[in-house]
Structure formats: structure tokens, C-alpha cells
Design a protein around this nucleic acid. Structure first.
Lengths: 129, 129
DNA sequence: CGGTATCCGTAAGGATACTG
DNA sequence: CAGTATCCTTACGGATACCG
């Protein structure tokens, strides 16, 4: 083991089974439906951008707050880039970064699985508690 | 549209962007860290089984309640099979079903992504709010 | 051993109103 | 337009105690 603080994240490198590892939090963060939807829309548009209002329009049921929070988290994580056009009223454009685009791959697989087996699973439990 | 019940799941097929579609709830359900860990452990042991206590021991930080809830949900969704040995004290064994095993594929990809990019993301935000 | 039941603090998330 | 701020209600999740 080393005491070099710069290598701390290397030693702690992705071990989901380490309670102290941020991977756990990260997994819970990217596994949500809102992240899945935002990333899909932005991935389809890539390398183009989508404005806030259009994202909201294409994500039925999302509140302004949740979309805002989701985009802020993704931006903070470096998965989404935010560009503001200083007009009045202002226009804000979002696009995926390289990192965000790389997330779309496993995320699309998970989405596909969920969509494919939804009926099979829902059939067995009419009681959606 | 058809009235063939066998094609029902095709018509109702997973549309994540439909607010009424159970796919949304399903995605939020399977995207958690506990599900990810349980499925990974059971997939490694497949087609073998793992007992409750061993699962808990190999998932540091999980509470008895959360493991219980997670397993009950997975069992209810048909992803995990539960077998009780009526001894005293009783022994309960869990294993993945075929469906559960199929989930491991996309889930492993998502885990791998999270573990691979954890440092990269965490580096940008020392403030883990 | 493998749960369930209960309590409780925290966080998620919707609704509404307001701002640059 | 694209937010932020506030309030409020529900869900998540840990701690503890109890049961078959």
C-alpha cells in the first residue's frame, strides 16, 4: 500500500463491495429513470444539443424540479455539458460529454432489458405496490 | 391491433417514455446498488444457491431489513427463487432464475462502467453531497 | 437462522410561486 | 425561458425488538 494521496482513488478503484467506495452512490445515481431518459435523448441527438424545454416536453411526467436536479447532477458528474446563450430570454443547451456518451452503452442495455421483460415481470405481480 | 393475448406484451411493450408504463418503476427498482450486488453474487454462484446469512456477510453495510426487502422484491419479480429447508433453525437458500440470470448481463455492464469511471467522476467533485 | 414489525430521521420528489 | 426557493407529503433506509 502507498501513502501517496494522489493514488488514493486508484487503491479504492471501483469496488462495489467496499462500503466506503463512491461506486455505490454512483450506481444509485445513474440507475434512475430520469437519468436513463435524459441520456437516451441526448445520445440520440449527439453531438447535437437539446434545450431544457424540449427535454421536458419529451419526458412526460417529469417535473421542472426533477429535470433541473437531474441535469445539475449529470453536469456536476461531467456527463453532460451545459451551454448558456446570453439572450433574453436566455437559452440553455445540453449535450453529452464523451464520458456521458460512454454511459449510454450500458444504460441502453439496461433500458432494453427492462422494456423487453416488463410485461413478463408485471404479469406475475398485478399488485404494483 | 390484435386480440391475441400472446401478443399483448408486444403492444404493451416497454415504453420508458410512457408515464403509465411500469417500465419506469422497474428501472428504478433494478438500478440500485443492493440489487446489483445480490444479482452479482447469485450470478457467480449460479446455478448454485446462497443462504441469507452468507449474502449479508458478503454485502458489507447492508442491513438485514434492506437485504430482506431486496430479496423479497426480486423474488416477487420472478428474478430470484427462494427455497426453505424446514429444519430448526430453518435455512433459506436463494438462486437466480433464468430471468434473473439474463438481468446479470446488462447489470454487469453498468457495474463495470461505474467501477471504471468512479475515480474520474469522483475526482471532479470532491464534494459528495 | 431468517425473518417481520415498529419507530424514526433523512432524503426524494411533486406543487406552487417567484426571479434574472 | 430556465431556472431557484419554499412547502409539504411520501418513500428510503437504519436501529431495535420480537417471533417461528
Amino acid at each position: 500500500m502507498t501513502t501517496d494521496p494522489l493514488r488514493k482513488h486508484v487503491e479504492a478503484a471501483g469496488d462495489l463491495f467496499d462500503p466506503a467506495c463512491p461506486t455505490r452512490r454512483l450506481l444509485d445515481r445513474i440507475g434512475t429513470k430520469w437519468v436513463s431518459m435524459v441520456v437516451k435523448l441526448l445520445a440520440e441527438a449527439a453531438p447535437g444539443e437539446i434545450r431544457f424545454a424540449e427535454l421536458q416536453r419529451r419526458m412526460p411526467g417529469v417535473s421542472q424540479k426533477m429535470l433541473s436536479v437531474t441535469l445539475r447532477n449529470l453536469t456536476g458528474d461531467g456527463l453532460v455539458a451545459r451551454r448558456v446563450e446570453p439572450t433574453v430570454p436566455p437559452r440553455v443547451y445540453y449535450r453529452l460529454t464523451e464520458l456521458g456518451l460512454s454511459l449510454e452503452v450500458p444504460l441502453a442495455a439496461l433500458r432494453a432489458w427492462a422494456e423487453a421483460h416488463m410485461a413478463e415481470i408485471d404479469h406475475g405481480r398485478p399488485d404494483n405496490h
